[in-house]
Write a protein that binds this DNA or RNA. Sequence first.
DNA 1: TATTGTTATACTCTATAACTATA
DNA 2: TATAGTTATAGAGTATAACAATA
Lengths: 172, 172
Amino acid sequence: MPQTPTDQPPTELTPAQLEAYFAFTEVSSLLRHAVEKQLRDAGDLSYVQFQLLARLGDAPGGWRRMTDLADGVVYSRSGLTYQAQLLEQRGLVTRSPSPDDERSTVVALTDEGRAVLATVFPGHIDALRRLLFSTLSSDDVDDLARILGGAASHLRANPPRSAAPRRRAPRA
Amino acid sequence: MPQTPTDQPPTELTPAQLEAYFAFTEVSSLLRHAVEKQLRDAGDLSYVQFQLLARLGDAPGGWRRMTDLADGVVYSRSGLTYQAQLLEQRGLVTRSPSPDDERSTVVALTDEGRAVLATVFPGHIDALRRLLFSTLSSDDVDDLARILGGAASHLRANPPRSAAPRRRAPRA
DNA sequence: TATTGTTATACTCTATAACTATA
DNA sequence: TATAGTTATAGAGTATAACAATA
């Protein structure tokens, strides 16, 4: 009874799957730590703050609505308000009401914000190259982009936050 | 490794590298959130706590020294002490002085800890299969394991924490 | 009524520094 | 002196709920 050809998904992953998963989590964790350190040292930015600035830098006009930023990065509006306040206090972004919709707040990159981004970016790129890409052939990079790109699409389509919000069980 | 494709490291990544990086960070973030939710719902465990229990479950005898756990997971001893206290209060681990070295504390999985692990694991595996592996061919999995395994080794050899601890610049 | 964003608040987690004790 | 671990403490970050304003 080696295996039923079946219906029930096995409760184990294949060795290759396990290996891939462990490698993924390890790279993820180590890379994240290294990148966070670089961002902190080079521009006194947390990873989330860098992501916010980078998204603004990418956006046409250098601005986005709060909600759009929150959806991409922080997962809660109040969390984004907190981060936006920090960035605004440092003069890296401005917040202003949207002319289109008075409810919306438009977050825009300032010149100084763009300058900080420019300061931090080379080191960021350099860290990525040094820590990640220096070991990968260009075929490897293509494979990664293809495989993880597909996985990202799939994950995006199965949003982790869709389930009903639930209180944690009170402690026994 | 073949070669570095350039003499001067460019200040840009190739489009494929960027794509791979973005896909990687996106998968990492979405997967992490989904897994954290599953662990929370199924066993009221944070990701770190799950990692600690899983490492103990993997260890021969079901125990490890505090420092060995800290090195693998938490990056600071006090952080591990905090987490170990929480797990001990819940009866999932015990802490006791090592007979070999009186300075060391041995953290051991209890039966209840093992039970929680057993409760949480199937859902964990299932989430991984559903969110990640369902979209990947077995060649993809092999590629991922190979590519990321190599990257993980490289990252491990360039520990992000090796640099001298440095104070953040005081606010202007 | 639904959506956008802020505020108040509480909580989790993490790290640094000082400390104790063992090797 | 170096190592293992704990404690005290402070800070960053996050989320929930209540709220105000606009659509």
